[in-house]
Design a protein around this nucleic acid. Sequence first.
DNA 1: CTATTTCCATAACGGCTGGTATATAAGTGG
DNA 2: CCACTTATATACCAGCCGTTATGGAAATAG
Lengths: 206, 206
Amino acid sequence: MEIETATAATPHKGRPREFCVDMALAAALRVFWSKGYEGASMADLTEAMGITKPSLYAAFGNKEALFNKALDLYEREKADYMHAALDAPTARGVAERLMYGALDMYTCPENPNGCLGVITSVACGAEAECIRQAVLERGAAAKRAMLERFARAKEEGDFPPDTDAEGLAAFLTAVNQGMSVQAGAGATRAELERLVETSLKLWPGR
Amino acid sequence: MEIETATAATPHKGRPREFCVDMALAAALRVFWSKGYEGASMADLTEAMGITKPSLYAAFGNKEALFNKALDLYEREKADYMHAALDAPTARGVAERLMYGALDMYTCPENPNGCLGVITSVACGAEAECIRQAVLERGAAAKRAMLERFARAKEEGDFPPDTDAEGLAAFLTAVNQGMSVQAGAGATRAELERLVETSLKLWPGR
DNA sequence: CTATTTCCATAACGGCTGGTATATAAGTGG
DNA sequence: CCACTTATATACCAGCCGTTATGGAAATAG
């Protein structure tokens, strides 16, 4: 029926699965991304993935494990602009790459609008608390990396000497989060572009 | 058992209710505020409100109507700093009042952390879509008011002449939303203060 | 007092949730 | 051909969801 998984290296015995794990995971990511962890029901997921519930549980474990794998995929393929941004030669370059990268991702027509991390970390019932904690930890790690980068930038003279690098990291993160919220609220790409350009005009140093 | 509603002006016939509607609504607001619309179950609500489900339905209609009344209360008593901020004499004053007002509210120990509007607008399953739309409409109205204020500020010379007032409104909104996200993620008041001070240092004009 | 009205408490409703048991289909190794 | 292993399909589970019907309790009106 469906495309086989291409890893013919290990010719497993038993009945081969009829769906591609990677494609199914990508479909699951889209559902989580647009509806959030709790808003995505197993029925939503199985329908989007084109498989039945037993197949899902056999291949991915359970809903929580599926989400974590989708989150890995998200960071690897969608949010890699964050890591790339930190390699920019100047702090201004970091801010530029980060904001335009976020802008592109949030407004890409084939993606849901907004940031999966923001969506998942904001609010949840009691049973999703560990999911929320996992997402928060990734956000904290990203912020730590940005902080180190800005500390270096300050040493390199990218900022005026009285600059609060930690405050600037929180600031850049906040604008990014706000952009995600506004994208989810239906802001157009043109509106978000003006937000980015305004923010960069205010950005200090080089 | 509980405190009676103080409106003895109309001595209704029939059995009087044993709880205070306003206090129950305030309790419901706290639940929605910390768990979101979908994350707040009727069991959560009735427990926090100290009433049973039939009492809730008799007094407030249903979950959606209860949320809308809680949202009214929120705007009236918690988010009034937004309207107050627009009365500041200069655009910088608007930004100051808005950010410090948000900071105070997001970090007040007796409030849940973050902004109810952001929490509710971010992600939801299908059945909460109309709730989300209602919240988005209020956010859009707030943004429109800020936009008008900044257009006036530009005429009054609060900004450099080449300023994008619309971009600045989106910017201020984004920082506010980001602050809400970070507050919900567990940021300390000190961290958010540095975010606010950094943002105000970058804010243009007077 | 009774009649009436309103509220409270219990318990239940249909529907959906995440998660599974069972039976069958489709492959491989002998 | 026959085991054996793995995946699929159907049906089902207990539990929670928002919501409501039912019966009794507490007030006023006459």
